[in-house]
Amino acid sequence: MLKIKNLHASINGNDILKGISLEVKAGEVHAIMGPNGAGKSTLASIIAGKEDYDVTDGEISLDGNDIMELSPEERAHKGVFLSFQYPVEIPGVSVTNFIKTSINESRKAQGLEEMPAKDMLKMIREKSDLLEIDRKFLSRSLNEGFSGGEKKRNEIFQMAMLEPKLAILDETDSGLDIDALRIVANGINKLKSKDNAVIVITHYQRLLDHIVPDFVHVLHDGKIVKSGTKELALELEEKGYDWLKNI
């Protein structure tokens, strides 16, 4: 589904990614781990199409089509979803209004009619129940005054509503307490299917207790220095990241 080949990227002349190759197939869960500053969030942003970075080399394709020239919204329309590490506040725009706009814009891009209000409501009800979200929460301004946990839960709620093909979860576990972590992980697991794929970006392994990855990659200094199965995550938890520096 997602193919990344030899990706190099920099910002303000500083090289951040130095040759990343990665293939994610439908139905798979990949975890990308690594110390702070390794380039994890940069990789996520570049897949989603953030324009602050200069991609100096490499390719990214989705279902065999090059997506490098596509705008962020076009990538979103093709099913790329990024759960932000720091979700942005938009004062005065309710969660419901935002998700409605988001869904209908994607449908429009795919040549579909707008979703009828009745269906939309039903879906909102279903998905908010899945993530144990209070209805009152949905009428609040997007992310404004939300706690860290509420922000992350709201991200996964949007993911549930948009049903993306490829979901990238950037540090979704940070800011979550144990209960919230379980609810969020549970939601993600329920959304997983053989047709979609998930990339979990995390610093710690605790989220991976709940969302079991098929593959674990270790990112260090802009390169994937080690790949393996879920056992690798446990090993990292035990040894920390320092030993990787010598690889």
Binding site: V88, I90, I99
Partner: peptide
């Protein structure tokens, strides 16, 4: 804010309308 909206499939022009409407709510 714009990137966040874009990432959710909302183009820039629409995103601005959304944000301005929120601002004026």
């Amino acid at each position: 804010q714009l990137f966040y909206c874009n990432q959710r499939g909302i183009n820039t022009e629409k995103a601005i309308a959304l944000i301005v409407n929120g601002f004026s709510k």
